[in-house]
């Protein structure tokens, strides 16, 4: 269902920086003058130690934050100097995010968690429900539709999170340490899933991680150190 008909890169960052101001005229640099180019259909692995800026970069790509400098284009949208409402809209439709700590809402059922982004985007509830059930079925979560996150295992939670990331049919999947809280078996399964999404469903997948599990599937590897790209990128 994805059109790879876009000309040009799906993600393009030009000298993008993110600086955090502190009190007293001091600041902390998240990332510094990053140039990055990711084409549609790629599976990108971003590596780096803690504090290297992985999360900052990912948050910028996901529209969770705005660059302090530079130009950032994701899925045809201009994310630098974008208004908060535009970012909100972007988050609903253009990307799906998967997190290390799953980040499911504890008071919503599995089905409701998955349906949420679609409902937020304004889609009709009936249609949303159908699609959510489909996705969860595909991920073998059907027996757990009405369960609360507290009742799920780590692997089940991550599968739910992935279903949630997919519900709005985004072009890009962003994953922040997706296997960080999983045992080896589940970790492998998640990586396989992400690879599948990339190859068979032609999503562009960007994974920020310490682990090497995804390396075999990566079409691009980017390494970050102290907020700058040391290898990969463009």
């Amino acid at each position: 269902m994805i059109k790879n008909s876009r000309q040009g890169p799906l993600i393009r960052a030009e000298a993008v920086s993110r600086v955090y101001p502190l009190s007293g005229n001091r600041s902390v640099i998240g990332i510094h003058r990053i140039d990055l180019r990711i084409d549609p259909g790629e599976l990108v692995v971003i590596k780096g130690e803690s504090g290297s800026g992985k999360s900052t970069l990912l948050s910028l790509l996901g529209g969770l934050d705005s660059p302090s400098e530079g130009r950032l284009f994701v899925a045809g949208r201009k994310l630098h100097r974008a208004r908060p409402e535009e970012l909100t809209q972007f988050r609903r439709t253009a990307v799906g995010m998967v997190f290390q700590s799953f980040n499911l809402l504890p008071t919503l059922t599995v089905l409701e968690n998955v349906a949420l982004p679609s409902l937020l985007a304004g889609n009709p509830p009936g249609q949303t429900r159908t699609r959510a059930e489909e996705l969860l079925d595909w991920l073998s979560m059907t027996p757990r539709l009405d369960h609360m996150p507290g009742q799920l295992s780590g692997g089940e939670m991550q599968r739910t999170a992935i279903a949630r990331a997919l519900i709005n049919d985004p072009e890009i999947i962003l994953a922040d340490e997706p296997t960080g809280n999983l045992d080896s078996r589940n970790a492998a399964a998640v990586v396989a899933l992400l690879a599948d999404l990339n190859r068979r469903w032609q999503r562009t997948v960007v994974i920020a991680t310490h682990s090497d599990l995804a390396d075999p599937h990566a079409t691009l590897q980017v390494r970050l150190l102290d907020g700058a790209i040391v290898s990969g990128g463009s």
Partner: peptide, 16 residues
């Protein structure tokens, strides 16, 4: 707070 951030990240607006 965390859940609020999640909502925001999923596309919930400030107003919401």
């Amino acid at each position: 707070r965390r859940e609020l951030a999640i909502l925001r990240s999923l596309g919930g607006s400030k107003r919401l």
